[in-house]
Amino acid sequence: MIATRPADTADALEGGFTEAPIQSARAFREILEAMARPGTIRRVQGARPPEPLSVAAGVALLVLTDPTTRLHLAGRADCAEVRDWVAFHIGAPLTRAEEADFAVGTWEALHPVSRFRIGQPDYPDRSATLIVEVDRLVNHGPALTGPGIETATWLNLPETAAFRANRALFPLGFDTLFTAGDRIAGLPRSTRVEAI
């Protein structure tokens, strides 16, 4: 790929894992715990992606995406710096929302989320994973129940209606990772969400 702006190309080469096998293993373990225990907030490190991506979103992309996964950059995340960084460190083909295996952006930029793939009735795993950038993550807000949660927990979701509609599709539906700074939380399609 020929970079249009050489000055940015240097930046694009930075910010990946320096010791990929170890760093991705530690990061995946945090992501696994986050997804297996919806609502728990974990910390990840090792990536320095360009603005506007958070550290956690960069880590999630490095750990989970590669040339075999179609990636959708939404809103401000779809900028030259991020595209170059993804091209160098990940090599994931960029695509529109409807075809994406992974999508990253703010909740507003990802809307309407009903366009993302929800899997097929015989292959519900063929669905999108959304990496939603939020300002902060706190265990306060809508109540979460379901697999991975002993009784109930709470997480400051950007809204509840979309996640209730997503749960109603189970076993179809998209899965979500929320990222804020170096914090990450998971919300699989199996989680029941209730506004309180």
Binding site: F28, P124, P171, R189
Partner: peptide, 15 residues
């Protein structure tokens, strides 16, 4: 490992 990790996360999402 990325391929296996993606499969594990989808497995977690659809128990």
């Amino acid at each position: 490992k990325r391929m296996i990790r993606r499969a594990i996360l989808k497995g977690i999402a659809v128990p």
